[in-house]
């Protein structure tokens, strides 16, 4: 079966006064209907730009998709004209943004905003769209949806706004929902509620989700597949279990080691990844992660590592990935440190 979304060697660069920023540089993945792909990485690793590129929302002329292919149900998204892309956006591929406080327009009633994409894509009348918006608000668990639909965004709490955003995104029953750090701006209990709501709705509607996050806890809960990004490059990609338990890249190990755990033993201090994420204008030579990598050897600054298959459908872009003895924790146990 053809994948719902197929991304091949996607590269999006921004042309700034200071040089070319390779925000996304050679990303490939595929997404099947009803599945969840988590895109993980530090700030500035290109997660959001990947999402925006898929929807062709990169602001030209500063940024441009310079290479690669994006196929939605077999059709090339990059070859579409502006009106075809607009038909895709919000209808087939919908997006939820990070900050629910600012992603609702303050001058429109919530119900009106939710209904807007229905008026746009389904050509519903204002009244029908409003009625449908009330149903959607009910679906995302807003009490008294009929009254609440007549509220303005500032009358909603943060969690309710994110629910409203989800309702808005699901209005046209999209095939793919891209959630760009949907819970980052919310407090922890609300985060859990929102994630639960998303999983629940996914089960009901069969929508595939691309979840952009830097929270590995969320990934473990929701993802079928995981893609780890670093400096615009795809570092590791594979089924969630495989990436978590048999991860092949030192950066992924670093991410996992820097997670707080509840089953800590006496030497269970958090191990942060040292150093700073690289500037995307001066990406380190060879493997972009080598200056921060405790396993780096002399080949690392010289050659860009190719992606190797380290498990079924599980790829890691490290020179040593998959080699015997090159496993998580080797450095702590006295492995070489560059």
């Amino acid at each position: 079966m053809a994948a719902l979304l197929e991304v091949r060697d996607l590269a999006t660069h921004f042309f700034t006064r200071d040089g070319v920023v390779k925000a996304v540089d050679g990303i490939s993945f595929s997404l099947d209907p009803g599945k969840t792909l988590a895109v993980v990485g530090e700030s500035g690793s290109g997660k959001s730009v990947t999402a925006l590129s898929i929807m062709r929302l990169i602001q030209e002329p500063a940024g441009r998709i310079v290479d690669g292919e994006v196929y939605f149900k077999g059709d090339s998204v990059l070859a579409m004209n502006e009106s075809q892309v607009r038909d895709l956006r919000g209808d087939r591929i919908a997006m939820i943004f990070q900050d629910p406080m600012t992603s609702l327009n303050p001058v429109f009633r919530v119900g009106r905003q939710i209904g807007e994409s229905l008026m746009l894509h389904r050509h519903l009348s204002r009244k029908d769209a409003f009625e449908r918006a009330i149903e959607l608000l009910d679906m995302v668990g807003i009490p008294h949806p009929r009254d609440r639909a007549r509220d303005y965004p500032h009358q909603f709490s943060g969690g309710m706004r994110q629910r409203a955003m989800i309702a808005m995104a699901l209005a046209c029953d999209p095939d793919i929902l891209i959630a760009d750090e949907p819970t980052t701006a919310l407090d922890v209990t609300i985060q859990a509620q929102i994630l639960e709501l998303m999983s629940e709705l996914q089960e009901r509607t069969g929508t595939a989700i691309i979840m952009i996050t830097h929270d590995l806890g969320i990934v473990a809960d929701m993802a079928d597949d995981v893609m780890v990004m670093y400096a615009g490059k795809q570092i590791e990609y594979g089924p969630a279990d495989s990436v978590f338990y048999r991860s092949g890249h030192p950066y992924t190990w670093g991410l996992l080691d820097s997670l707080p755990r509840h089953d800590v033993d006496e030497k269970g201090t958090l191990l942060p990844i040292t150093g700073q994420p690289p500037s995307l204008i001066n990406v380190p030579s060879g493997c972009a992660f080598h200056p921060r990598c405790r396993y780096a050897r002399e080949i690392c600054p010289r050659e860009v590592p190719a992606s190797r298959e380290v498990g079924e459908g599980h790829f890691a872009a490290c020179h040593f990935a998959g080699q015997d003895g090159f496993v998580r924790g080797a450095a702590q146990a006295g492995g070489e440190v560059a």
């Binding site: 607009r86 919000g90 943004f97 992603s103 609702l104 303050p106 001058v107 894509h121 955003m165 808005m168």
Partner: peptide
Amino acid sequence: ENEYVDAARAMGASDLRIMFRHIMPN
């Protein structure tokens, strides 16, 4: 620069619609 403008674009709204319905009133 507000996220609701990006949201409107991601919803498939055209330039004119974004201009008149989402930016102007604000």
